[in-house]
Amino acid sequence: MDSLLEGSEHLERELTPEPIIAPASVSFVLHGALFGALVFYGVLAGFFHKNTWGNAGPGGAIQVNLVSNAVPLPSENPPSQNVLATETPSKAPAPPAPKAKEAADPTAIAMPGKTQQTQQQPTQPKTQLHQPQQKPDNKAAFGEQAVTSMQRATQAQVTQSGPTSVSTGDFGSRFPWYVDGINRKMSTSWYKPEVDPRTPKGTRVYLTFTIYRDGSPSSVQVDRASGSPTLDRSCVHGVQRVDTFGQLPPGYTSSSLKVSYYCEY
């Protein structure tokens, strides 16, 4: 009974129309005011126009005219104070004006046996005239580099000693064959294909590790990372793959050997 009463009350509430006129009119007024404010601001802003970039006309962006397609660079040759060796020689003197042709005397009587001298055209001297020197074109080269400029790239220095350096005393000079052995062993145990091919050529990672008397390497550490994680990892794996570098030489008294090694991609 109670629930039935409640239900009818609920139904009644549902059927009563909600008052929408008052909120709707408020909404209309507010939206109208907002629109009016926008239009007003637009009109007002038109009066106080500020020219910040470019012209007010169409295409209002700054326009840059390319004066030259190349940035002039200072000449490679330092300016010379020597007058004789100047790059801008003075102009050659103007060729002399052609002499006025002597008018033939109309009263003269030609003498027999005397040939008339043929007027010879002045010929150019055989010597090479001074060619004005080409001004050096100090343009910075863009895009594809000319072959000649490639030679300025620094070449990696090929060292004779190889990638291993031993930091303990005079080991390297006393037992170079053992150092060579480390190089040989590492060159077979380091797998280059493990390295990401995007790694720049010539990138190096420096490792340090210790070789014990029985020749086993331990405590492998990256001393100077290459920036390529795959190269670092592959080089460390290369050392870890080695079981033994061979017993340390009998003439070497210390118990272990500290080695620095680099892998160069």
Binding site: W177, G181, R184, K185, G215, V242, D243, T244, F245, G246, Q247
Partner: peptide, 8 residues
């Protein structure tokens, strides 16, 4: 061989 061959 063991001396120059890396302990093998």
């Amino acid at each position: 061989v063991i001396r120059l061959g890396g302990g093998i």
